[in-house]
Structure formats: C-alpha cells, structure tokens
Amino acid sequence: MKVLQVLQALPTQDGDGVNIRRVAGFDGRYLDPFLMLDELKSDDRKDYMGGFPPHPHRGIETFTYLIKGGFEHRDHLGNKKAIRSGDVQWMSTGRGVVHSEMPLAESDGLHGFQIWINMPSAEKMRPPRYQDSTSTPLPVIENGTGARLRALGGSWQVAEQIAESPLNNLAADAALADVELQPGGRLDLAPLDQSKVMVYIHTGSLAQGQYKSGDLLILEPGSDLALSSEHGGGALILAGEPLQQPIAHMGPFVMTTQDELMQAVRDYQAGRFGTIE
C-alpha cells in the first residue's frame, strides 16, 4: 500500500457548539471529489447536544454515518428519520435543501461522521434526493483474518465476497466502507476502480502504530489496500473519481463560480429553499 500523504483531522466546532475533528479540502488540492470529513466522537453530552439546527445546502452531497448514538434528520422535503448506530444517510442537495440533524435524547455518547462529496457542475442545480439505510441493513463482509468490512456506499469486494450498499448512486462514483480490525487483524483489497482512495483512521492505529486515530491517508492511484492493526483499530475507506473542476465555497454552499455562489445566497435569503414544517 503506497501512502502519498498523511493529513491530520483538527479540532473545531460546528452547528450549535458541537465539538468535532475535521479534515477540510475546499481548495480541491488533496481530497477531490470529497470536500470535508467531520468526525464527532464524545461520551460527554455537552460536546454534541446542541446538534445542527436548520440550515441550508446547495451543490453538495452529505453522507452521514453513525457508529454509536443517534440523530434525527428532518428536511423541508418532508423527510423525518431517526438515524442510529450502523445507519447511513445520504442527501444529494442539488439546487437546495434545508435540513437539521439533532441528537436523539437517549443517545449515551456519539461517534459518527459527516462527509461532503462535491457534485459535478452540470448536476448542482438538479432536484434534491434523499436516501438512508434504516429499512435495509448494510451488508457486511468478514474475511476470517480478524477484519470486518461494512459497505456504507457503493460496491465492495473482498476476495470472492461482494457487498453492495443500498446507497449506490453517489456523485463522482464515490464509495465508502467502514473496516473494523481485531488485534492482529488484516484486510487486503485489490486496487479500486476510483482514482482517489483515502483511509481515515477513527479508532486505534494501523500498521504497527505508524498511523493513528485522526490520520487521513491519501493513497497513490492504483495502489492496493493492506490494512493491519497490532492492537485493533477501525478506519473508513473513501473512494471517488476526482471532478477536477473549480470550487467556489461559502459556508454550506459549494458551487463552481462566484456568481453561482452569490445566487445561492440570494435564493436562500429570498426563501426559495423552503422551510422545515
């Protein structure tokens, strides 16, 4: 496995004072087609109970995955779902969505992620779409060598086993998986079809402690994946095809030109995004 670069997630806040770790790539240099990875991991309710009150998006896809705890998603399209441990939720915002994500009252700690995927410029103004896995459990592959892969988005193959997530129409041919490694566990994957492949370590460490929690490994295109952990660990695999297009970013809006960005602001201020009932 050839690692080109290692980026570290940095502590910050978002929403109503929610403490997170973030890797941002709004300059398009390292993460394309991904824009941002946020990790929320805390057993202290003060770190997350403010949640993410209603706010807009345009021009991106948001992908939420929970390992522990729960959120309630609501949006102006009428979707209202409780997303719990092991669930994913995908929102292709297109021309505009207003939504909120608030912690469930019974949540005893939270560990989850929100990942932003950029949309091709020609698709940024199409109607929004929503999908989650609450009624269709995500497929899991266990390889017998202390590794477990959960297919969060897209299709995955481990040796002769194939797992396809019900969320299989993400922008930029994106695919995501969560890998759990027992002490001494190992997972080997052949090179993926996508040009951009990254590994984010969220638990423990990999490669005999060489890479630790909070590290984002950017792999050489065409590299195989060889994940191992001496003492146990967990990691997300993110794959996608770079869009190689300009990025104009302001808060929750990501377009390709400044004119498009300013129009998004005007449309939101004029109430054209709708409201949550």
Rank of each mutant, 00 (worst) to 15 (best):
I115F: 06
L170N: 09
Q89Y: 11
P103V: 11
Q114W: 01
R148I: 02
M102S: 15
P137E: 10
A175R: 14
L176C: 12
M91K: 04
L104V: 01
I117Y: 15
A151S: 09
W156Y: 04
S107G: 11
A122E: 06
E142A: 02
P183R: 00
L167A: 07
W116L: 03
L138N: 02
N143T: 07
P166S: 05
F113P: 02
T136D: 09
L181S: 01
A105L: 14
W90C: 13
I162L: 05
D193L: 12
D173G: 06
G78I: 00
Y65A: 07
A159F: 11
A163V: 11
L149R: 13
E164A: 09
Q114R: 15
L170H: 04
I141R: 04
N143C: 11
L110F: 02
V140H: 01
A177R: 07
W156M: 05
I83R: 04
D178E: 08
G78K: 00
P120Q: 06
L192C: 09
Q157P: 15
T93K: 09
G96S: 07
G185F: 00
E106W: 13
A122Q: 13
Q131A: 08
K124H: 08
G185V: 00
G146W: 00
W90Y: 06
D75F: 13
S107E: 05
A105K: 09
W156F: 15
E101V: 06
I115N: 05
N168P: 13
A174D: 15
A147D: 03
F63L: 12
A147C: 01
S107M: 13
P103C: 08
A175M: 15
G154Q: 13
M119P: 05
A163T: 10
P127V: 08
E101W: 03
F71H: 05
Q89D: 12
G86N: 08
T64R: 05
D108L: 13
I67R: 03
S100Q: 14
F113S: 06
